[in-house]
Amino acid sequence: MLSEEEKQEIEAQSQHYPTTRALCIEALKIVQEHRGWVSDEGIADVAEALQMAAAELEGVATFYNMIFRKPVGRHVILLCDSVSCWIMGYDRLREHFRARLGIGLGETTADGCFTLLPNVCLGACDHAPAMMIDSTHYQDLDPDRLDEILAKYRMEEIREEKKEKRGPADGNTADP
């Protein structure tokens, strides 16, 4: 079932489209935003809410590459592999990711932190090579820059972990 929040967000989008059918891509994006990816259950939930056949929605979901039908890590790295970035050093960056994170294209690190995906031209060709991590663009990349950027995400992860560990001790005594 869609959560209340998901339902409300989909409802809010409906003002932009004259048919319920046209909402389906928005709805998939919303479910992904909340759940990280779109599982079979996610497909079934949206199909039911929009009164579409699940198989048809599946056809739509698999067409668009920013709808993830497989689980992804907490951060998704989209490495541009189009021609300008290829000329300016894409291969070197891909290999650097492999060396640093131990993953190739389409793979997720064992700790679930990063998924690495190739992506078509990000419109930063005059600052190639380029990539996005989640919603943030990075450009003029080289291996050293990659290390700096990855370190920043690692630091954030550690901070989050600490917060979680500290959480209950900070006053959540509801647990028996």
Binding site: S82, V83, S84, V120, C121, G123, A124, C125, D126
Partner: peptide, 11 residues
């Protein structure tokens, strides 16, 4: 939709 490889003008 600007996605033609090498194109960054509409952005």
């Amino acid at each position: 939709d600007e996605m033609e490889p090498g194109t960054f003008k509409d952005r």
